[in-house]
Simulated assay, not measured.
Amino acid sequence: MTIDPFAALVGQPQAIELLTQAVRQNRVAPAYLFVGPDGVGRSLAARCFVELLFSSELGVTAALQNRLRQGNHPALLWVQPTYQYQGQRLTAAEAAEKGLKRKAPPVIRLEQIREITEFLSRPPLEAPRNVVVLEEAQTMAEAAANALLKTLEEPGQATLILIAPTPESVLPTLVSRCQRIPFYRLDAQSLAVVLTQTSHQEILQNQAVLSIAAGSAGSAIASYEQLQTIPPELLEDLKKAPASYRKALELAKKIDKDLDTEAQLWLVDYLQQFYWQRWHQPSIINHLEKSRQYLLAYAQPRLVWECLLLSICQK
């Protein structure tokens, strides 16, 4: 029984049409650039497209889908940004599993581009072409991007898919060699469908999280998971203005003690949405935005939260 490879991709009809027609008309480009916000289906679309490419004659089967999802197909190389740690390259997920905290974000490294070149030097196995997918292509340093450029000029019997937020975030010479496939933020109905399909329908009851997500199912899920890490008592105290200066200072101390910087930055976003829905006071939102800027500038977090909560306490 054949399967529609794009059945799980919701809210991106233009991308589906462009990719499906490319295969039907036998006009598959050597390279594609999937551009759009995080969490709207770009990586899922890449996987669906690979399924279609690998099964253009026989049709998509459950067995093929399982192999691709497990990452064990010999004609597919999936590349993610990595950290360098004790001589090993670790993806963000692998670093999280080891409990590693890194200040700088992961990047696609020159060594990974060299591995792509080596992979593409071999003829495809069990598929009509080799396929390479590069997630977060904007994280490539200039040396890595220039090395990839040589591969794009002569990809051989292969298709490369670069995934990035905008064309401007990728080296222009790379963009010029790719066919652009646009992805868009999901409307409310599509977002509800995705969250329900992925068993996250409880998020639909949290308007602040949905506002943070701004049409990105991935961002909604990540925000909701972050919400679960905030101590419930702390969150309840923050949902109302501190009753006194003393209470404001106690809350600031607890935030500084219990939450790391990343969680504090997320909390600023959450409170912006929550406070606006509750009070509709631009001055409070401005105070929160200044607090975000101070945290990003490595100001002392406890002092940042003391100033913020004292200002709210006076309202």
Rank of each mutant, 00 (worst) to 15 (best):
A297T: 11
L162W: 08
V60M: 06
P232L: 10
P13L: 09
T61N: 05
P74R: 01
G99S: 01
P301H: 04
L19V: 12
A164N: 14
A22C: 12
Q197R: 11
A158G: 07
A145P: 01
V175K: 04
A213G: 05
P5W: 07
H200Y: 07
Q205F: 02
A145R: 07
Q281T: 10
Q226S: 14
A75P: 02
W305E: 03
F274P: 00
V35W: 03
A31G: 05
T20N: 13
E51M: 15
G41R: 01
E115D: 11
I161F: 06
R302L: 09
P13Y: 06
A217W: 03
W276Q: 05
E111N: 04
S244Y: 03
A299Y: 13
D269Y: 01
Q300F: 11
P124N: 04
L271A: 02
E135S: 04
L251Y: 02
W266Q: 04
A45L: 12
R185S: 14
E17M: 11
A45Q: 13
Q277K: 07
K254I: 08
I255V: 06
L171K: 10
A297L: 12
L64S: 10
A192L: 01
L308Q: 02
Q201K: 08
A127Q: 09
L52T: 14
L296K: 14
Q207N: 10
Q112T: 07
Q138E: 14
Y245L: 10
E118F: 03
G59R: 08
K257G: 00
A220H: 08
L171V: 09
A127T: 09
I3H: 10
T139V: 03
L77D: 11
R102T: 15
L58E: 15
Q277W: 07
L90V: 00
V170D: 06
Q88S: 04
P165N: 15
L18I: 13
H200D: 05
K254C: 05
S199E: 13
R109G: 06
L52A: 15
S219M: 15
